[in-house]
Write a protein that binds this DNA or RNA. Sequence first.
DNA 1: CCTACCGATCGGTAGG
DNA 2: CCTACCGATCGGTAGG
Lengths: 195, 195
Amino acid sequence: MARPRRKPGQESNRRAELLRAAARLFVRQGFHATTTRDIARETGMRSGSPFYHFVSKQALLKAVMVEGIENGLDRLEKALAGAETDEARLRCLIRTHLDILLDAESPAPMMINDWRALDDADSAEVAAAFDRYQAPWQTVMSALASRGLLGSGVPTARLLLIGMLNWLPQWYRSDGPCDLDEITETAFAMLLRRG
Amino acid sequence: MARPRRKPGQESNRRAELLRAAARLFVRQGFHATTTRDIARETGMRSGSPFYHFVSKQALLKAVMVEGIENGLDRLEKALAGAETDEARLRCLIRTHLDILLDAESPAPMMINDWRALDDADSAEVAAAFDRYQAPWQTVMSALASRGLLGSGVPTARLLLIGMLNWLPQWYRSDGPCDLDEITETAFAMLLRRG
DNA sequence: CCTACCGATCGGTAGG
DNA sequence: CCTACCGATCGGTAGG
Protein backbone atom coordinates (compact mmCIF):
# COMPACT_ATOMS: atom_id res chain seq x y z
CA MET A 1 0.00 0.00 0.00
CA ALA A 2 2.49 2.52 1.16
CA ARG A 3 4.31 4.00 -1.73
CA PRO A 4 8.00 3.18 -1.75
CA ARG A 5 10.27 5.94 -0.56
CA ARG A 6 13.60 5.73 -2.20
CA LYS A 7 16.35 8.23 -2.46
CA PRO A 8 17.31 8.91 -6.04
CA GLY A 9 20.05 6.46 -6.90
CA GLN A 10 18.58 3.51 -5.11
CA GLU A 11 15.77 3.05 -7.58
CA SER A 12 14.09 -0.29 -7.85
CA ASN A 13 14.63 -2.37 -10.94
CA ARG A 14 10.93 -2.77 -11.38
CA ARG A 15 10.36 0.96 -11.50
CA ALA A 16 13.04 1.30 -14.14
CA GLU A 17 11.50 -1.55 -16.10
CA LEU A 18 8.12 0.16 -16.00
CA LEU A 19 9.70 3.34 -17.29
CA ARG A 20 11.37 1.54 -20.16
CA ALA A 21 8.20 -0.27 -21.18
CA ALA A 22 6.13 2.89 -20.86
CA ALA A 23 8.60 4.87 -22.94
CA ARG A 24 8.58 2.27 -25.69
CA LEU A 25 4.78 2.08 -25.78
CA PHE A 26 4.18 5.83 -25.50
CA VAL A 27 6.52 6.49 -28.40
CA ARG A 28 5.04 3.75 -30.54
CA GLN A 29 1.33 4.30 -29.82
CA GLY A 30 1.01 7.60 -28.05
CA PHE A 31 0.00 8.26 -24.46
CA HIS A 32 -3.75 7.84 -24.69
CA ALA A 33 -3.59 4.80 -26.95
CA THR A 34 -1.43 3.05 -24.35
CA THR A 35 -3.17 1.58 -21.32
CA THR A 36 -1.59 1.09 -17.95
CA ARG A 37 -2.51 -2.55 -18.48
CA ASP A 38 -0.30 -2.65 -21.59
CA ILE A 39 2.58 -1.30 -19.58
CA ALA A 40 1.97 -3.72 -16.73
CA ARG A 41 1.79 -6.74 -19.05
CA GLU A 42 4.94 -5.70 -20.87
CA THR A 43 6.71 -5.60 -17.50
CA GLY A 44 5.26 -8.88 -16.31
CA MET A 45 3.00 -7.29 -13.73
CA ARG A 46 -0.73 -7.37 -13.05
CA SER A 47 -2.97 -4.52 -14.02
CA GLY A 48 -2.99 -2.67 -10.70
CA SER A 49 0.69 -2.90 -9.93
CA PRO A 50 2.08 0.06 -11.83
CA PHE A 51 0.19 2.23 -9.34
CA TYR A 52 2.42 0.91 -6.60
CA HIS A 53 5.31 2.72 -8.31
CA PHE A 54 3.52 5.75 -9.77
CA VAL A 55 0.59 7.70 -8.39
CA SER A 56 -1.06 8.00 -11.78
CA LYS A 57 -0.66 7.33 -15.46
CA GLN A 58 0.18 10.99 -15.95
CA ALA A 59 2.97 10.73 -13.37
CA LEU A 60 4.37 7.85 -15.39
CA LEU A 61 4.33 10.02 -18.51
CA LYS A 62 6.06 12.87 -16.76
CA ALA A 63 8.76 10.54 -15.45
CA VAL A 64 9.29 9.05 -18.90
CA MET A 65 9.68 12.48 -20.42
CA VAL A 66 11.88 14.03 -17.77
CA GLU A 67 14.15 11.04 -17.36
CA GLY A 68 14.24 10.52 -21.11
CA ILE A 69 15.36 14.07 -21.70
CA GLU A 70 17.95 13.89 -18.94
CA ASN A 71 19.21 10.64 -20.38
CA GLY A 72 19.54 12.35 -23.73
CA LEU A 73 21.41 15.24 -22.16
CA ASP A 74 23.91 12.79 -20.70
CA ARG A 75 24.53 11.30 -24.12
CA LEU A 76 24.89 14.78 -25.57
CA GLU A 77 27.47 15.82 -23.00
CA LYS A 78 29.49 12.64 -23.32
CA ALA A 79 29.57 13.05 -27.08
CA LEU A 80 30.52 16.72 -26.83
CA ALA A 81 33.54 15.91 -24.70
CA GLY A 82 35.32 14.52 -27.75
CA ALA A 83 34.86 17.60 -29.94
CA GLU A 84 37.60 20.21 -30.21
CA THR A 85 36.11 23.07 -32.25
CA ASP A 86 32.73 24.78 -32.16
CA GLU A 87 32.02 23.48 -35.64
CA ALA A 88 32.74 19.93 -34.50
CA ARG A 89 30.56 20.48 -31.46
CA LEU A 90 27.61 21.60 -33.55
CA ARG A 91 27.99 18.58 -35.85
CA CYS A 92 28.19 16.42 -32.78
CA LEU A 93 25.01 17.88 -31.27
CA ILE A 94 23.12 17.30 -34.48
CA ARG A 95 24.31 13.76 -34.97
CA THR A 96 23.83 12.69 -31.38
CA HIS A 97 20.37 14.24 -31.24
CA LEU A 98 19.39 12.20 -34.29
CA ASP A 99 20.78 9.04 -32.73
CA ILE A 100 18.76 9.69 -29.59
CA LEU A 101 15.58 10.45 -31.52
CA LEU A 102 15.78 7.36 -33.67
CA ASP A 103 16.87 5.00 -30.92
CA ALA A 104 13.76 2.91 -30.28
CA GLU A 105 15.47 0.75 -27.67
CA SER A 106 16.65 3.40 -25.29
CA PRO A 107 14.34 5.00 -22.73
CA ALA A 108 15.50 8.39 -23.96
CA PRO A 109 12.95 9.58 -26.53
CA MET A 110 11.98 13.24 -26.43
CA MET A 111 8.29 12.41 -26.40
CA ILE A 112 7.57 15.31 -28.68
CA ASN A 113 3.88 14.55 -28.71
CA ASP A 114 1.65 14.10 -25.68
CA TRP A 115 2.76 17.20 -23.83
CA ARG A 116 -0.89 18.15 -23.73
CA ALA A 117 -1.67 15.20 -21.49
CA LEU A 118 0.27 16.83 -18.66
CA ASP A 119 -1.17 19.34 -16.26
CA ASP A 120 0.53 22.68 -15.70
CA ALA A 121 2.85 21.54 -12.93
CA ASP A 122 4.13 18.46 -14.74
CA SER A 123 4.34 20.38 -17.97
CA ALA A 124 6.57 22.95 -16.32
CA GLU A 125 8.91 20.22 -15.07
CA VAL A 126 9.24 18.78 -18.54
CA ALA A 127 9.80 22.21 -20.02
CA ALA A 128 12.56 22.81 -17.48
CA ALA A 129 14.23 19.54 -18.44
CA PHE A 130 14.00 20.47 -22.09
CA ASP A 131 15.55 23.84 -21.37
CA ARG A 132 18.50 22.09 -19.77
CA TYR A 133 18.75 19.90 -22.83
CA GLN A 134 18.93 22.94 -25.06
CA ALA A 135 21.55 24.74 -23.00
CA PRO A 136 24.57 23.17 -24.75
CA TRP A 137 23.02 24.04 -28.11
CA GLN A 138 22.71 27.64 -27.02
CA THR A 139 26.33 27.69 -25.84
CA VAL A 140 27.80 26.21 -28.98
CA MET A 141 25.68 28.29 -31.30
CA SER A 142 26.46 31.48 -29.42
CA ALA A 143 30.15 30.76 -29.83
CA LEU A 144 29.65 30.32 -33.57
CA ALA A 145 27.55 33.46 -33.77
CA SER A 146 30.20 35.52 -32.04
CA ARG A 147 32.56 34.52 -34.85
CA GLY A 148 29.98 35.64 -37.39
CA LEU A 149 29.25 32.13 -38.58
CA LEU A 150 25.53 32.10 -37.90
CA GLY A 151 23.15 33.77 -40.31
CA SER A 152 20.57 34.79 -37.76
CA GLY A 153 19.68 35.18 -34.10
CA VAL A 154 20.81 32.30 -31.92
CA PRO A 155 17.54 31.37 -30.20
CA THR A 156 15.56 31.32 -33.43
CA ALA A 157 18.23 29.37 -35.26
CA ARG A 158 18.39 26.92 -32.38
CA LEU A 159 14.65 26.29 -32.38
CA LEU A 160 14.53 25.95 -36.14
CA LEU A 161 17.42 23.49 -36.07
CA ILE A 162 15.99 21.30 -33.33
CA GLY A 163 12.60 21.34 -35.03
CA MET A 164 14.13 20.32 -38.32
CA LEU A 165 15.71 17.34 -36.63
CA ASN A 166 12.67 16.41 -34.55
CA TRP A 167 10.65 15.89 -37.71
CA LEU A 168 13.00 13.12 -38.87
CA PRO A 169 11.19 10.23 -37.21
CA GLN A 170 8.27 11.09 -39.51
CA TRP A 171 10.16 10.34 -42.69
CA TYR A 172 13.63 8.92 -42.11
CA ARG A 173 14.04 5.24 -42.91
CA SER A 174 17.37 3.53 -42.34
CA ASP A 175 16.95 1.76 -45.68
CA GLY A 176 16.16 5.03 -47.46
CA PRO A 177 18.28 6.92 -49.98
CA CYS A 178 20.41 8.96 -47.60
CA ASP A 179 22.07 8.11 -44.32
CA LEU A 180 22.38 10.00 -41.06
CA ASP A 181 25.86 11.26 -41.87
CA GLU A 182 24.62 13.00 -44.98
CA ILE A 183 21.63 14.44 -43.18
CA THR A 184 23.86 15.68 -40.39
CA GLU A 185 26.11 17.36 -42.92
CA THR A 186 23.18 18.96 -44.73
CA ALA A 187 21.65 20.32 -41.54
CA PHE A 188 25.05 21.56 -40.39
CA ALA A 189 25.65 23.34 -43.67
CA MET A 190 22.23 24.99 -43.51
CA LEU A 191 22.98 26.48 -40.13
CA LEU A 192 26.37 27.90 -40.93
CA ARG A 193 26.78 30.99 -43.02
CA ARG A 194 28.79 30.03 -46.02
CA GLY A 195 30.84 31.94 -48.58
CA MET B 1 -30.39 5.22 -40.20
CA ALA B 2 -29.22 5.04 -43.74
CA ARG B 3 -26.07 6.98 -44.17
CA PRO B 4 -26.46 10.00 -46.41
CA ARG B 5 -25.20 9.55 -49.95
CA ARG B 6 -24.05 12.81 -51.37
CA LYS B 7 -21.91 13.56 -54.32
CA PRO B 8 -18.89 15.64 -53.43
CA GLY B 9 -19.94 19.25 -53.79
CA GLN B 10 -23.36 18.87 -52.29
CA GLU B 11 -22.08 18.34 -48.77
CA SER B 12 -24.37 19.05 -45.87
CA ASN B 13 -23.68 22.00 -43.65
CA ARG B 14 -23.84 19.81 -40.60
CA ARG B 15 -21.13 17.53 -41.88
CA ALA B 16 -18.89 20.53 -42.54
CA GLU B 17 -19.63 21.85 -39.07
CA LEU B 18 -18.66 18.53 -37.55
CA LEU B 19 -15.41 18.61 -39.47
CA ARG B 20 -14.60 22.08 -38.28
CA ALA B 21 -15.33 21.28 -34.66
CA ALA B 22 -13.40 18.02 -34.86
CA ALA B 23 -10.41 19.74 -36.43
CA ARG B 24 -10.33 22.36 -33.73
CA LEU B 25 -10.60 19.83 -30.92
CA PHE B 26 -8.16 17.30 -32.40
CA VAL B 27 -5.54 20.00 -32.82
CA ARG B 28 -6.05 21.38 -29.35
CA GLN B 29 -6.37 18.14 -27.38
CA GLY B 30 -5.28 15.35 -29.66
CA PHE B 31 -7.39 12.58 -31.17
CA HIS B 32 -7.71 10.25 -28.21
CA ALA B 33 -8.29 13.01 -25.70
CA THR B 34 -11.24 14.23 -27.75
CA THR B 35 -14.50 12.32 -27.44
CA THR B 36 -17.13 12.08 -30.11
CA ARG B 37 -19.40 13.59 -27.47
CA ASP B 38 -17.16 16.68 -27.32
CA ILE B 39 -17.48 17.07 -31.06
CA ALA B 40 -21.23 16.55 -31.00
CA ARG B 41 -21.74 19.07 -28.21
CA GLU B 42 -19.58 21.65 -29.96
CA THR B 43 -21.77 21.24 -33.03
CA GLY B 44 -25.01 21.36 -31.07
CA MET B 45 -25.81 17.69 -31.60
CA ARG B 46 -26.54 14.77 -29.29
CA SER B 47 -23.95 12.15 -28.57
CA GLY B 48 -24.95 9.60 -31.19
CA SER B 49 -25.48 11.97 -34.08
CA PRO B 50 -21.96 12.31 -35.45
CA PHE B 51 -22.27 8.66 -36.46
CA TYR B 52 -25.02 9.61 -38.86
CA HIS B 53 -22.39 11.53 -40.83
CA PHE B 54 -19.30 9.40 -40.24
CA VAL B 55 -19.01 5.65 -39.84
CA SER B 56 -16.53 5.94 -37.03
CA LYS B 57 -14.41 8.32 -35.05
CA GLN B 58 -11.42 7.25 -37.10
CA ALA B 59 -13.26 8.14 -40.31
CA LEU B 60 -13.81 11.60 -38.87
CA LEU B 61 -10.09 11.92 -38.20
CA LYS B 62 -9.19 10.82 -41.70
CA ALA B 63 -11.63 13.33 -43.20
CA VAL B 64 -10.23 16.12 -41.03
CA MET B 65 -6.69 15.32 -42.11
CA VAL B 66 -7.34 14.83 -45.81
CA GLU B 67 -9.63 17.81 -46.20
CA GLY B 68 -7.37 19.91 -44.01
CA ILE B 69 -4.36 19.13 -46.17
CA GLU B 70 -6.28 19.77 -49.38
CA ASN B 71 -7.51 23.02 -47.95
CA GLY B 72 -3.91 23.96 -47.20
CA LEU B 73 -2.86 23.03 -50.71
CA ASP B 74 -5.49 25.40 -52.10
CA ARG B 75 -4.13 28.24 -50.02
CA LEU B 76 -0.60 27.36 -51.13
CA GLU B 77 -1.52 27.44 -54.81
CA LYS B 78 -3.46 30.67 -54.54
CA ALA B 79 -0.53 32.32 -52.81
CA LEU B 80 1.98 30.95 -55.32
CA ALA B 81 0.07 32.50 -58.20
CA GLY B 82 1.31 35.92 -57.17
CA ALA B 83 5.02 35.05 -57.12
CA GLU B 84 7.22 35.75 -60.13
CA THR B 85 10.59 34.17 -59.35
CA ASP B 86 11.55 30.84 -57.84
CA GLU B 87 13.04 32.66 -54.89
CA ALA B 88 9.76 34.48 -54.31
CA ARG B 89 7.89 31.22 -54.66
CA LEU B 90 9.98 29.52 -51.99
CA ARG B 91 9.49 32.45 -49.63
CA CYS B 92 5.80 32.27 -50.37
CA LEU B 93 5.61 28.53 -49.64
CA ILE B 94 7.35 29.02 -46.32
CA ARG B 95 5.25 31.94 -45.23
CA THR B 96 1.92 30.46 -46.30
CA HIS B 97 2.74 27.14 -44.68
CA LEU B 98 3.40 28.95 -41.41
CA ASP B 99 0.13 30.84 -41.72
CA ILE B 100 -1.72 27.58 -42.29
CA LEU B 101 0.00 25.84 -39.39
CA LEU B 102 -0.69 28.60 -36.92
CA ASP B 103 -4.24 29.29 -38.04
CA ALA B 104 -6.36 27.89 -35.23
CA GLU B 105 -9.61 28.97 -36.78
CA SER B 106 -9.33 27.30 -40.14
CA PRO B 107 -10.10 23.61 -40.59
CA ALA B 108 -6.77 23.27 -42.37
CA PRO B 109 -4.29 22.04 -39.76
CA MET B 110 -1.81 19.43 -40.87
CA MET B 111 -2.62 17.23 -37.92
CA ILE B 112 0.97 16.26 -37.59
CA ASN B 113 0.26 14.06 -34.61
CA ASP B 114 -2.29 11.28 -34.44
CA TRP B 115 -1.31 9.56 -37.68
CA ARG B 116 -0.93 6.43 -35.62
CA ALA B 117 -4.63 6.37 -34.85
CA LEU B 118 -5.35 5.54 -38.49
CA ASP B 119 -5.33 2.07 -39.95
CA ASP B 120 -3.25 1.27 -43.02
CA ALA B 121 -5.90 2.20 -45.60
CA ASP B 122 -6.72 5.58 -44.07
CA SER B 123 -3.08 6.26 -43.40
CA ALA B 124 -2.30 5.71 -47.08
CA GLU B 125 -4.99 8.20 -48.07
CA VAL B 126 -3.56 10.84 -45.78
CA ALA B 127 -0.05 10.14 -47.02
CA ALA B 128 -1.25 10.60 -50.60
CA ALA B 129 -2.81 13.94 -49.70
CA PHE B 130 0.39 15.03 -48.03
CA ASP B 131 2.38 14.02 -51.10
CA ARG B 132 0.17 16.27 -53.21
CA TYR B 133 0.79 19.04 -50.70
CA GLN B 134 4.51 18.64 -51.08
CA ALA B 135 4.50 18.60 -54.88
CA PRO B 136 4.77 22.38 -55.32
CA TRP B 137 7.66 22.41 -52.85
CA GLN B 138 9.44 19.80 -54.89
CA THR B 139 8.85 21.78 -58.10
CA VAL B 140 10.08 25.09 -56.74
CA MET B 141 13.08 23.59 -55.00
CA SER B 142 14.06 21.60 -58.06
CA ALA B 143 14.05 24.78 -60.10
CA LEU B 144 16.31 26.44 -57.54
CA ALA B 145 18.57 23.39 -57.44
CA SER B 146 18.98 23.40 -61.21
CA ARG B 147 20.39 26.91 -60.89
CA GLY B 148 22.82 25.70 -58.26
CA LEU B 149 21.11 27.57 -55.44
CA LEU B 150 20.41 24.60 -53.20
CA GLY B 151 23.13 23.21 -51.03
CA SER B 152 21.95 19.62 -51.03
CA GLY B 153 19.59 17.07 -52.57
CA VAL B 154 16.10 18.34 -53.15
CA PRO B 155 14.04 15.68 -51.34
CA THR B 156 16.16 15.84 -48.22
CA ALA B 157 16.21 19.64 -48.19
CA ARG B 158 12.44 19.65 -48.68
CA LEU B 159 11.80 17.32 -45.77
CA LEU B 160 14.19 19.19 -43.50
CA LEU B 161 12.54 22.49 -44.41
CA ILE B 162 8.99 21.32 -43.83
CA GLY B 163 10.02 19.70 -40.57
CA MET B 164 11.71 22.86 -39.40
CA LEU B 165 8.47 24.76 -40.00
CA ASN B 166 6.20 22.09 -38.54
CA TRP B 167 7.93 22.43 -35.19
CA LEU B 168 6.92 26.07 -34.90
CA PRO B 169 3.59 25.50 -33.14
CA GLN B 170 5.66 24.07 -30.29
CA TRP B 171 7.46 27.31 -29.57
CA TYR B 172 6.22 30.23 -31.62
CA ARG B 173 4.17 32.82 -29.77
CA SER B 174 2.76 35.79 -31.60
CA ASP B 175 3.81 37.98 -28.70
CA GLY B 176 7.34 36.60 -28.75
CA PRO B 177 10.58 38.32 -29.77
CA CYS B 178 10.47 37.65 -33.49
CA ASP B 179 7.66 37.71 -36.01
CA LEU B 180 6.74 35.41 -38.86
CA ASP B 181 8.40 37.61 -41.47
CA GLU B 182 11.75 37.29 -39.75
CA ILE B 183 11.35 33.57 -39.29
CA THR B 184 10.39 33.18 -42.92
CA GLU B 185 13.48 35.10 -43.95
CA THR B 186 15.73 33.04 -41.68
CA ALA B 187 14.37 29.74 -42.95
CA PHE B 188 14.62 30.97 -46.53
CA ALA B 189 18.22 31.99 -46.06
CA MET B 190 19.10 28.64 -44.51
CA LEU B 191 17.83 26.80 -47.52
CA LEU B 192 19.59 28.85 -50.15
CA ARG B 193 23.27 28.53 -50.79
CA ARG B 194 24.81 31.89 -50.15
CA GLY B 195 28.04 33.52 -51.23
C1' DC C 1 3.24 -6.59 -5.86
C1' DC C 2 -1.37 -9.50 -6.47
C1' DT C 3 -6.56 -10.15 -6.18
C1' DA C 4 -10.71 -8.44 -6.86
C1' DC C 5 -13.24 -4.87 -7.91
C1' DC C 6 -15.63 -0.15 -8.74
C1' DG C 7 -17.24 3.95 -11.13
C1' DA C 8 -16.99 6.40 -15.06
C1' DT C 9 -16.57 6.98 -19.70
C1' DC C 10 -16.62 6.01 -24.33
C1' DG C 11 -17.45 4.45 -29.21
C1' DG C 12 -21.06 2.87 -31.38
C1' DT C 13 -26.01 1.06 -32.48
C1' DA C 14 -31.25 0.11 -32.88
C1' DG C 15 -35.25 2.16 -33.74
C1' DG C 16 -37.80 5.84 -34.78
C1' DC D 1 -30.83 13.73 -36.32
C1' DC D 2 -32.70 12.27 -31.34
C1' DT D 3 -33.64 8.81 -27.55
C1' DA D 4 -32.12 5.31 -25.06
C1' DC D 5 -28.99 2.13 -24.42
C1' DC D 6 -25.16 -1.64 -24.53
C1' DG D 7 -20.69 -3.77 -24.08
C1' DA D 8 -16.17 -3.00 -23.33
C1' DT D 9 -12.48 -0.80 -21.47
C1' DC D 10 -9.90 1.88 -18.48
C1' DG D 11 -7.64 4.41 -14.58
C1' DG D 12 -7.44 3.68 -10.14
C1' DT D 13 -8.17 1.61 -5.22
C1' DA D 14 -8.81 -1.40 -0.87
C1' DG D 15 -6.94 -4.88 1.39
C1' DG D 16 -3.72 -8.14 2.00
